[in-house]
Computed example of a mutant assay.
Amino acid sequence: MRKLSSLSSIGLLAVAVPAAATSVSVSFVQPERYTDASYSHPYATEKDRAEVQRDIAQHFQRLAERRLPANEELRIEVLDVDLAGWFEPFRFRTAADVRIIRDIAWPRMKLRYTLLRDGQPLASGEEQLVDMNYLMNSNVYSGSDRLRYEKAMMDDWFEKRFSAH
């Protein structure tokens, strides 16, 4: 069961993902200030942002379940999201809600993380995830997956950051 809660007074949205052998918590800090975190249009509502946040949190959960030992806990704070592509304002009459994918509009995500093993800090940091070659890299996700480029970027970061642990 998934639970979304918003603390609008401090601009923090926490997404609780299902408990599994590996514990992962993903929180979204001031999502209303994110660069571009909506599937539908550039003027995102809280509901639009919540959909993207849910999908990001679920993907981090799947990555942790597959790659982290049961005695580790990962805490991620997402500080900014900029989805691949953009909405082009001059297309407002014909395709206002169509995200245009171009090689110069790569996906980005800024986050802070802490990895704990048996309750003790093992690794932490703040990082900017960027995939400037997102259109040239192979991608295992379906073309209909709205987060396909971001998921590939998250996979790459997760592998590089946590494969040694």
Rank of each mutant, 00 (worst) to 15 (best):
M136P: 08
N139L: 06
Y43F: 15
V140D: 14
R102F: 06
N137L: 13
Y113I: 02
R54M: 11
R93Y: 14
L74W: 04
E73Q: 12
L63K: 03
Q61D: 10
L68H: 01
G85F: 02
F92S: 10
Q58I: 12
V98L: 11
W86I: 08
E126L: 10
V81K: 02
H41D: 07
E46S: 15
L74T: 00
P107G: 02
D80W: 03
Y141M: 04
H59R: 02
E73M: 06
W86V: 11
S138H: 14
L122G: 04
V140Y: 10
N139K: 09
A70E: 12
L115F: 02
D103F: 08
N133T: 13
G85L: 00
A95E: 13
Q61L: 13
A105W: 03
Y141F: 13
V98D: 09
M132E: 15
A84P: 03
D103H: 10
K110G: 08
L74H: 02
G85W: 00
E51Q: 10
R117N: 07
L63N: 01
H59L: 05
R117Y: 02
T45R: 06
L122I: 06
I56G: 01
E51H: 07
A96V: 05
K47C: 11
E88A: 05
F92L: 10
P107E: 04
F90K: 11
E127N: 13
Q53H: 10
Q53C: 11
L122M: 10
K110W: 09
R62L: 12
F90S: 13
E88I: 07
R91G: 06
Q61S: 11
E88Q: 10
R108W: 07
V130G: 07
P121H: 04
L74G: 01
K110E: 11
M136F: 15
P69M: 08
D82L: 05
R49A: 00
E73C: 08
R75W: 04
P42H: 09
A96I: 04
R67A: 12
E126Y: 06
E73P: 03
D55S: 05
M136H: 15
L116P: 01
I100R: 06
I104Q: 13
A70I: 08
L129S: 07
V52N: 00
M109R: 00
G119C: 05
E73T: 12
H41P: 02
Q128C: 12
P69L: 07
S124A: 14
A50H: 00
L122D: 06
W106E: 11
R108K: 15
A96G: 09
R49C: 00
